[in-house]
Simulated scan of single mutants.
Amino acid sequence: MKEIDPGPTAFRELTRAAERLLAAVAGLSDADIAAPSRLPGWTRAHVLSHLAAQAPGLERLLTWARTGVRTPQYASREARDAEIEAGARLRAAELVARVRQSAAHWQRTAETLPGPAWDAVVVPFTGEVCTPRRILVIRLRELVLHLVDLDVGHEVADIPPATRDIVLADVLGYYARAEGVPSFTVHGAGGEELARFGDGGPTVSGTAADLLAWLSGRGTGDTLDAPGGLPALPPWI
C-alpha cells in the first residue's frame, strides 16, 4: 500500500490539488453540475457531493488515529450513499462552498495531527488496515482523479508529475493485491519495469499518465504499447 510521509512537501501537494479542483469548479452553474460526469450514473453534483462528504470521512479516521477511539469513516455504505444523494440536490454555489470548507478543515486537521498519531492503525471504508500516512495518499488520489471525472477540462495528463507518480504507484499497489489480475508486466516509457503481476506475461508500456488513465479506468489504453493486447483487469476500487 502506497504511503507518504507527512510534512511540508506532502501537505503542499495536497493543498495544490485542492486549489486546482476548487478553481475548476468555482464558476459552475446549477445547470453545469446537473450535467453527467464521467462516472457512470453520477452527475457532476454527485462527484462534488462525494468530495464534500469524503473529506470529513477521512478526517474521522485521523480522529481515530489521534484519540485511539474507533471512529469509522462512514456509519455504513447506505449512510454514505444517502449523504451523497442529498448533497447532489444542492444548488451549485452551496455545494462548491461545502467542498471548499471541508477541504480546508481536513487540511488543518491533517497538518496538526500529533507525531505519534501518524503511526496509529486505522481502517478506511475499503477495509484495508493502514496508518494516516496512507490516508494522505487516498485524499490526494481522490482530489486529482475526481477532478478528471468532473469533465471540466482536466485530464490525467494534466496531473502534476509528483502527484501523478504517487497515484500511479497506489493503483499498481492495488492490483498487486487484487484478485483476478492476469499475468502482465508494466513498463514506463523509458523501458523501466514499474510492476510485475503473476509470472510477468505480456508487457504493457507507456507514459505514466497514459498508464494511470488506463489502470484507473479513465482511459481506453489505446495509446499504450501492448503487443499481446491489453489484459482484462478487474475493476479498480
Score class of each variant (00 low, 15 high):
59 E>A: 15
75 A>L: 11
71 T>L: 04
40 P>M: 05
64 W>N: 03
81 D>V: 00
101 Q>K: 10
53 A>P: 02
80 R>S: 00
47 V>M: 04
44 R>D: 05
54 Q>R: 14
74 Y>C: 01
87 G>M: 05
87 G>D: 06
57 G>D: 10
92 A>E: 01
88 A>W: 09
71 T>V: 08
74 Y>G: 01
101 Q>M: 11
101 Q>T: 13
63 T>L: 14
46 H>N: 14
63 T>K: 12
91 R>Q: 11
57 G>K: 10
54 Q>D: 15
95 L>E: 07
45 A>H: 06
63 T>P: 03
80 R>A: 00
49 S>T: 06
47 V>F: 02
101 Q>C: 08
50 H>P: 09
49 S>K: 11
63 T>W: 12
56 P>R: 12
59 E>W: 09
80 R>P: 00
47 V>A: 01
93 A>N: 08
94 E>S: 14
50 H>N: 07
38 R>A: 11
47 V>S: 03
87 G>P: 07
89 R>Y: 01
67 T>F: 06
55 A>H: 14
75 A>M: 02
85 E>I: 02
76 S>W: 08
102 S>P: 10
88 A>F: 04
74 Y>F: 13
96 V>Y: 01
82 A>S: 07
83 E>K: 04
83 E>V: 06
46 H>S: 04
53 A>H: 13
53 A>R: 15
83 E>P: 00
94 E>F: 06
47 V>W: 03
63 T>R: 15
70 R>Q: 14
87 G>N: 07
100 R>K: 11
99 V>I: 06
100 R>V: 01
54 Q>H: 15
45 A>I: 05
57 G>M: 08
40 P>W: 01
76 S>I: 06
80 R>C: 00
61 L>A: 04
59 E>P: 03
48 L>H: 09
46 H>G: 01
52 A>N: 11
101 Q>R: 15
95 L>T: 06
48 L>Y: 06
72 P>R: 06
78 E>I: 02
